[in-house]
Design a protein around this nucleic acid. Structure first.
Length: 564
RNA sequence: UGGGGUGUCGUCAAGUGGUAAGACACGGGUUUUUGGAGCCCGCAUUCGGAGGUUCGAGUCCUCCCACCCCAGCCA
């Protein structure tokens, strides 16, 4: 079944363009897109938007989407990124089948097209230094000046260009430039550089080449070669469209249509490679796959599912205006996904010991618990209960405020799937006053959690039997930045890092079955949140849990309101 | 005061001259052995601003304002 974008909502502007093109018979009704990453870094959720868009459009209109590595700059690109990019795209749920391409595979063709441009008098070899080229280009307000090398003969250009290829010149000594218009109001049209000399080993072509095409020359031709119909890119390339069109038109070759959309910005995080790299380099995160990172590898490690990310990409829409999407929407998507699929389990993050004084000392029993109330097919399991258990510190308050439904001295609550318990005593440290443990009595009649006399309790709390508990490390993650901002608002450099973006808890008390949890397993710790077994630091018998996202917490809201 | 874009709810986002979808967030209610989930209700008399055209304008016209992108031999 094809993955559908906006299946029930209205078409976005790109879908509209495509539908019109299909109707008018442009490209004979074909739809062929491509996702063209440069192998110089890790994919993040912004790329996911582009991947979902390109592959989604292709699937929606019975077309194809290529994966093409845009590898025309040997200085920046490395083979190690190829695999991670492929892994991430597949993980997201998309497949390029046999259409894996590399711009570097077209180097020979690019060269031939460049020669054609020269022969037609549309390109020339220029000896200006980078600095001089900049000066000759002019400014926003002043037109540029023609390069003194602009009028070289075709033969001389041909000779020089082939000698550039042979390696007779040093970096920056010569470039091949398009001959367009040095007074164009669009700076991209002021005789842009098409080829530069780079004595550099390319990760795929090795030392075969020492001249490399620029993006503007390579990208449009790559699209043309592959028969792309709709070449979708981000807004900053709008100005480049004129050049895209110029190259293809003057070469007289197949001409795809470039369409630009706004890239994704997410609140409380940053997306630019530079800022992400800063975080890694400064050791503010543990790496590109740190569970707090918006990279796909980070989100995967955190426990985000491909389904949730695809759903998110569908919901944010596609448009041309710059915007910052609230990270709350992403969190909504993963909650909605996991609510239906995650196994429920009990885990106490900040343990408080509870002794059930009227429960027999050495008695143990097995209670039935539902694995997922949203999906009865997931069945039930047994959980051990005994005299001493742990509950969450937050679930007991000596001085409970209004609307606090949990445990307090004299109050009765339900222990989930177990019994009603009433707090009869609070044991404190004489010197510090800290609560050491609480004493409760239980009502044997309420086994399973309901009372034969119809007596109701307002609160239900989770617990883990002390004797059976499995101790584990749990990592609580929060947004990288406290402010709602993102890259695009220009404030991201000043945004303060959230110092509490990672809180590591040791010896959390989890129900015993969790000891066997394996890397990548996802659970809902009831009343707390969704957790995923870390795929790096966990080992058999020693799972480490990452908090993916908390459960919605209406008590927290009430509490915060009361505080105001 | 160069060129290219964009301005509709707190945040995304529909709307294509006929009287402002939807989602998230937020608020209220209902239900509940997760204060989870579910369900119900509320949430832009107004579309960056000002004029104009029209029986009728978020949609058309004019002027203005704000914001984003471009002066890499990066992509």
């Amino acid at each position: 079944m094809p993955l559908q974008l906006n299946d029930s909502s209205s078409a976005n502007f790109i879908q509209e363009i495509i539908e019109n093109d299909i109707k008018s018979g442009k490209y004979n009704g074909r739809v062929h897109t491509r996702f063209p990453p440069e192998p110089n870094g890790y994919l993040h959720i912004g790329h996911a938007k582009s991947i979902c868009l390109n592959f989604g459009l292709a699937s929606q209109y019975n077309g194809l989407c290529n994966l093409r590595f845009d590898d025309t700059n040997p200085v920046k690109e490395e083979a190690e990124y190829i695999d991670s990019i492929k892994t991430d795209i597949k993980w997201l749920g998309f497949d390029w089948d046999d259409r894996l391409f590399y711009a570097s595979d077209y180097f020979e063709k690019f060269y031939e097209y460049a020669v054609q441009l020269i022969m037609d008098g549309n390109a020339y070899v220029c000896d200006l230094t980078p600095d001089q080229i900049r000066q000759y280009r002019g400014t926003f307000k002043t037109p540029g000046k023609d390069s003194p090398f602009r009028s070289r003969s075709v033969d001389e250009n041909l000779d020089l260009f082939s000698r550039m290829k042979k390696g007779e010149f040093k970096n920056e000594e010569k470039v091949l430039r398009a001959k367009i218009d040095m007074s164009s109001p669009n700076l991209n049209m002021r005789d842009p550089v098409l080829y530069r000399i780079l004595h550099e080993t390319h990760y795929r072509t090795g030392d075969t080449w020492c001249i490399y095409p620029t993006y503007d020359f390579a990208h449009c031709i790559s699209d043309s070669i592959e028969g792309i119909t709709h070449s979708i890119c981000t807004l900053e390339f709008e100005d480049h469209r004129h050049l895209y069109d110029w190259v293809l038109d003057t070469l007289g070759i197949y001409h795809p249509q470039q369409i630009e959309f706004a890239r994704l910005n997410l609140s409380n995080t940053v997306m630019s490679k530079r800022r992400l790299l800063d975080l890694v380099k400064q050791g503010l995160v543990t790496g590109w796959d740190d569970p707090r990172m918006p990279t796909l590898s980070g989100l995967r490690r955190r426990g985000y599912t491909p389904e949730a990310i695809r759903d998110f990409c569908d919901r944010i829409g596609v448009a041309k205006r710059n915007s910052i999407v609230d990270v709350a929407l992403l969190e909504h998507c993963i909650r909605e996904n996991l609510n239906k699929t995650a196994m429920r389990v009990m885990g106490v993050l900040n343990p408080l010991k509870m002794v059930i004084v009227n429960y027999p000392d050495d008695k143990e029993e097995e209670l039935d618990a539902v694995n997922n109330p949203e999906d009865p097919a997931m069945g039930t399991r047994k959980i051990p209960f005994s005299k001493v258990i742990y509950i969450e510190k937050d679930d007991f308050l000596e001085d409970p405020p209004k609307k606090f439904f949990r445990l307090a001295l004299g109050r009765e609550v339900r222990l989930r799937y177990a019994y009603y318990v009433r707090c009869v005593d609070v044991i404190k440290d004489d010197t510090t006053g800290d609560i050491l443990e609480i004493h409760c009595t239980y009502d044997p009649e309420t086994r399973g959690g309901s009372s034969p006399d119809g007596r109701k309790v307002k609160g239900t709390i989770h617990w883990v039997s002390a004797a059976h508990a499995f101790d584990a490390e749990v990592r609580l993650y929060d947004h990288l930045f406290k402010e709602k901002g993102s890259d695009s608002d220009g404030k991201s450099d000043e945004m303060a890092l959230n110092k509490d973006s990672l809180i590591t808890l040791h010896s959390c008390k989890l129900e015993p079955g969790l000891k066997e949890a394996e890397k990548g397993d996802i659970f809902q710790f009831e009343r707390v949140g969704y957790f995923c077994v870390d795929n790096r630091v966990s080992s058999p018998g020693h799972p480490v849990f990452n908090r993916i996202v908390t459960l919605r917490d209406s008590w927290k809201k009430i509490k915060n309101r009361q505080r105001q």
